[in-house]
Design a protein around this nucleic acid. Sequence first.
DNA 1: ACCTTGATTGTTTAA
DNA 2: TTAAACAATCAAGGT
Length: 180
Amino acid sequence: MKGAKGKGAARNSREVLKLVDDRKVGKRKAVVKVDKSSKRQAKKPKSAKKDPNKPKRPPSAFFVFLEGFRKEYKKEHPEVKAVSAVGKAGGEKWKSMSDAEKAPYEAKAKKRKSDYEKLMKAYNKKQESMAEDGDEESDRSKSEVNDEDEEDAEEGQHEDDDDGEEEEEEEDEDEDEDDD
DNA sequence: ACCTTGATTGTTTAA
DNA sequence: TTAAACAATCAAGGT
């Protein structure tokens, strides 16, 4: 995936614009390192360590859809073992689906993201504890560190929006479609 | 590596 | 310095 950038990297600027318009863009870190590069192109140093404890990225709506689609596709095409075939077929169908159809998957993806953020919070906490401080105070009684903290998915999801239903279905096709 | 889209992050540029 | 535009990475699935 890191090596294949020239394929999916070409995104329409208009698409991004719409995304930016919908989401809040100014919530990132915006480090701005100003490299002496001529144009825009400066990959990160890639010094990320492989931490098995670090939670993976949450699946997007499309991936959530794929999870079920793969199973179905496999059932329909048990002889096809190439993942690429399922990817193509899934992508095609995904494009064919309407926003209303994607809605449940997006809702699921949203929940997944919430869990991911929670896991990351715990993960960061652990990392913080792991960090050894050369300068330590005399207080050491709180050096207790939980090993399995990330897996601790307690009940207590925050349902701010109307969605978040796992067992309840909801027919909501009130979205305004914008065809061009 | 293949193959898909989405989401997020990172970098560069304009004001 | 900040917002905006763009670029790149990465998530799963089986061989």
